[in-house]
């Protein structure tokens, strides 16, 4: 026993040394586990704040590099911006609006967005009132469309309001054609169902089938060519008749119509004038 105590006294420093080294090795081996304990790593808040201070000093010396990097990035972004702007300009006729159909880019059309503030669907002569008028650039005879297709034509305009004759009015006929065969004829409402209208003047020899789509013909000045009007629901022809009676399901749901676009055809006046001169 006495020898043992003597041994410990004699070699106390060596034992302490060995103990410490074993602890250190234990730390190394279990390093993973200890790093997770926040207190013993540099994520400890006091150590972290010290590093934060040192970082702010170091960052000052890194400012030049940071500046260069940023300016390079800036240039790259600017180039990208210009490239995208160029792309946007070339795509503009298609992207000008959220329309599902394309407006021919060679014609100068502009859209005036308007909101429907009054409308009816149950009369023989229905009308739609819009919240935009003369001061917004709306004029008589302009075409009105929605995102789905043709709505109607502007009839009268006041300073702040405009009244539109929709397809659902037996006073107007809208010239439309088949997308496949390009035969055209006037579309007219019969006054019964707000979802359907009749297409007349399609001769017996024209070939078409159920579901074919109709678009505006572009022969009038109000609508550009190719705006959807509806699809063929059914048709019949009697032995003695020269023309089909075609029932068309309208593309626009007039009951739920709320936002429309008025088409401003810039060359309307010039075209109209020329046509009048020719007729004289």
């Amino acid at each position: 026993m006495r020898n043992l105590i003597n041994f410990f006294i004699q070699y106390s420093v060596l034992l302490l040394f060995l103990f410490m080294e074993v602890v250190a090795m234990g730390f190394v081996v279990k390093n993973q586990a200890y790093q997770q304990s926040v207190f013993l790593s540099s994520s400890n808040s006091s150590i972290a704040s010290l590093y934060e201070i040192s970082n702010s000093v170091v960052e000052f010396f890194k400012l030049k590099t940071a500046n260069e990097t940023l300016s390079e990035e800036n240039t790259a972004l600017k180039n990208q911006l210009i490239r995208l702007q160029n792309q946007l300009t070339t795509l503009k006729p298609e992207r000008k609006d959220s329309l599902r159909f394309q407006i021919p880019p060679e014609m100068e059309y502009q859209f005036i967005a308007a909101k429907v503030i009054n409308s009816s669907t149950n009369k023989l002569q229905n009308y739609i009132t819009l919240n935009k008028g003369l001061r917004d650039g709306i004029k008589v005879d302009m075409g009105v469309i929605s995102d789905l297709g043709v709505v109607g034509i502007v009839k009268t305009v006041s300073d702040k309001f405009a009244v539109v004759i929709p397809i659902l009015n037996d006073k107007i006929k809208i010239n439309c054609k088949f997308t496949k065969s390009h035969y055209s004829g006037p579309l007219q409402w019969d006054g019964f169902d707000y979802r359907y209208a009749n297409l007349n003047d399609i001769a017996r020899h024209v070939e078409f089938s159920l579901g074919d789509s109709l678009v505006t013909s572009g022969f009038t000045n109000t609508f550009p060519e190719g705006i959807p009007v509806g699809n063929i629901e059914n048709f019949d022809i009697k032995e003695s008749d020269a023309y089909y009676r075609i029932r068309v399901k309208l593309a626009v749901d007039f009951r739920t119509l709320s936002h429309v676009k008025v088409i401003d055809y810039k060359n309307y006046g010039e075209q109209r004038y020329l046509e009048k001169v020719a007729e004289k």
Binding site: M20, E21, V23, A24, M25, G26, F27, V28, V29, N31, Y34, Q35, L40, S41, S42, N44, I47
Partner: peptide, 11 residues
């Protein structure tokens, strides 16, 4: 602790 290398510098 500052170097995140627990044990190495102790040893």
């Amino acid at each position: 602790i500052f170097s995140n290398t627990l044990g190495i510098h102790i040893f």
